[in-house]
């Protein structure tokens, strides 16, 4: 459904406020179908908020955006879809772990997408955001290995 709307009605995101309304519908849908996801998204937000120089805002096309010093680390839509911009080499390495996908709209770029379906996925999403944070704060990523817990 999300992919269908993005594909055929994506152009409407330029109407002010409409993407935010759409994200709110996603939130209502999530409440009715996967209410736990809302708790996991809150937990990610709470945790990321503790990181150095990280601010949280509303993404221009709906969802929660995580920023480092004014630059976007990534954003999560209310259906649990995490979108992030990484370098192509980091993306390549992460793709080999088999959990992330090409971004749902921007193929062949550093953008990735990751769907949060379980609590374990929420942990992995946080791990991905940490990689993004490290990339922006230190200019490089020392270790993208997956912690065992995830």
């Amino acid at each position: 459904m999300f992919s269908f709307v993005i594909r055929y009605f994506g152009f409407l995101k330029f109407v002010p406020g409409l993407a935010l309304v759409f994200d709110n519908w996603l939130k209502i849908h999530t409440l009715l179908t996967r209410p736990d996801l809302l708790d996991w998204l809150d937990a990610i937000e709470t945790e990321a908020d503790k990181w150095e120089n990280v601010t949280i805002s509303t993404h221009k096309y709906g969802g929660t955006q995580f920023n480092y010093g004014g630059k976007e680390i990534g954003h999560i839509h209310s259906n649990g879809l995490l979108d992030m911009l990484l370098s192509r080499s980091i993306k390549q390495q992460l793709m080999q772990q088999g959990r992330i996908q090409d971004h749902h709209s921007f193929k062949n770029t550093g953008w990735i997408s990751f769907y949060i379906h379980t609590k374990r996925d929420a942990g992995y999403a946080l791990h991905l955001l940490q990689i993004g944070h490290e990339r922006l704060s230190k200019g490089s990523v020392s270790n993208i290995c997956l912690p065992e817990a995830y």
Partner: peptide, 11 residues
């Protein structure tokens, strides 16, 4: 309020 609870209250 956490999101889930805020959503229910709003509903």
């Amino acid at each position: 309020l956490r999101s889930r609870r805020l959503m229910w209250y709003s509903c």
